[in-house]
C-alpha cells in the first residue's frame, strides 16, 4: 500500500493531526451555524438534513470556506474544488470508511 501511494499526493477528506504521542482525526463537524455555508460565494455548500454537503459542480475553488472553517476541515481535490468529510453519506460506503478502517477504533460514529 505504501508503495502504491509513492509519489502520489494523497488528498484525504479528514485531517489527522499528530504530535509526539498524541494524534487525532479532524473531520467536518457539520455545524448548525456553519460558517462555510454562510461564506460560500457559489452557493455550493448547503445543509441537508443536518449534514453539510458540497455540490462540487457549483464550487469554483475560491477557498472562502477554507478561510471560514474554524476546524480546518475542508481541502481541495485534484480538480481544485473543495472536498470534506460528508460522513460517507453521499457515497456508497454506508458506515463511514474511517470508522471501519481505524485499527485502534479511535473514531466512532454516533449521535451527540
Amino acid at each position: 500500500m505504501v508503495d502504491a501511494l509513492k509519489d502520489k499526493k494523497i488528498r484525504p477528506r479528514i485531517k489527522v493531526e499528530q504530535q509526539g504521542s498524541i494524534s487525532f482525526a479532524v473531520n467536518c463537524r457539520h455545524c448548525t451555524e456553519a460558517l462555510c455555508v454562510k461564506n460560500c460565494i457559489a452557493g455550493a455548500l448547503s445543509q441537508v438534513d443536518g449534514l453539510i454537503v458540497i455540490d462540487q459542480e457549483k464550487c469554483v475553488g475560491c477557498y472562502s470556506c477554507i478561510m471560514a472553517c474554524p476546524f480546518g476541515a475542508l481541502m481541495s481535490n485534484e480538480e481544485g474544488v473543495m472536498q470534506k468529510c460528508e460522513l460517507c453519506a453521499t457515497n456508497s460506503h454506508g458506515q463511514p470508511v474511517c470508522v471501519q478502517g481505524c485499527p485502534n477504533k479511535a473514531i466512532v460514529y454516533e449521535e451527540r
Binding site: Q18, F24, F71, G72
Partner: peptide
C-alpha cells in the same frame, strides 16, 4: 501551522467531541 493540536486538550475535546 494552523492546527487544533495547539489548543488545550479540554478545548479540543469541546471542539471535536460534541455537535457544533
Amino acid at each position: 501551522q494552523p492546527a487544533l493540536m495547539a489548543f488545550a486538550q479540554q478545548v479540543r475535546k469541546q471542539q471535536l467531541g460534541r455537535a457544533q
